[in-house]
Design a protein around this nucleic acid. Structure first.
Lengths: 113, 113
DNA sequence: TCTCTAGGTTGACAGATGTCTAATCAAAGA
DNA sequence: TCTTTGATTAGACATCTGTCAACCTAGAGA
């Protein structure tokens, strides 16, 4: 991904805009945002699909559809372990989008993680 | 029915998710992202609609439609001056979205008020 | 092998979205 | 007042999205 970290301070190229817009579009759904925050809020960092599905008044296929959107946007990743599939977030990807929206916040020196 | 809180952070409420998702959805279009960065990149901070329209291979009404989306999401604001209408970005709103995506980046060394 | 369970895929469909043309509104100037 | 220019609104329409029911796949365990 080659998008300038100060993108909001410089005009976006159509190509960069297309890449960024695809990620933001995936974030532009309340169910997906809740799924994302549910995963991010989990202390272990991983959440089983069954736990996600249980948190919503939606069918399994619908949750699966939203998880796929998040996965294909690079916002989450997953791994199968036995019968269960676990999801976790991709912080670097979220940080990239964050810096686009507010380059000034990213100007703070990087502290030890 | 409530989701148990964690040390990492609390999952979004459906209401909060709806508010955030609406803003991200508006950002989820390449034309709108380019419009936003075009305005943000302008040194004076303000851009006339005619300049925005000239930068795209789209009709005036279409640009007007996208500007309205951005305006209603609180991402930009505008003012008419004579025949022309000028747009500027709303940095606080963008910073809010940025902090949601990467709370760590917004953790400035300044003490909270 | 066969069965059971957790997830994912497919196909269908109502509703939302982005784009255009045509019409309308707002301000300036003759 | 009439015309011209800049911008928005209205209506139409093709495409995209989110959701579900039905079906399929992967793994565990008899």
């Amino acid at each position: 991904m080659s998008i300038s970290p100060t993108a909001v301070g410089d005009p976006l190229t159509p190509d960069d805009a297309a890449v960024l817009a695809r990620a933001f579009k995936v974030l532009g759904d309340p169910v997906r945002l809740r799924v994302l925050s549910l995963i991010a809020a989990r202390n272990g960092g991983e959440v089983c699909v069954c736990d996600i599905t249980a948190a919503f008044d939606l069918t399994g296929p619908t949750i699966s559809y939203h998880l796929r959107q998040l996965r294909e946007a690079g916002l989450v990743d997953c791994q199968r372990r036995g019968t269960w599939v676990y999801y976790w977030i991709m912080p670097a990807r979220l940080a990239l989008l964050s810096r686009f929206l507010d380059p000034a916040a990213a100007a703070t020196p990087v502290a030890a993680s």
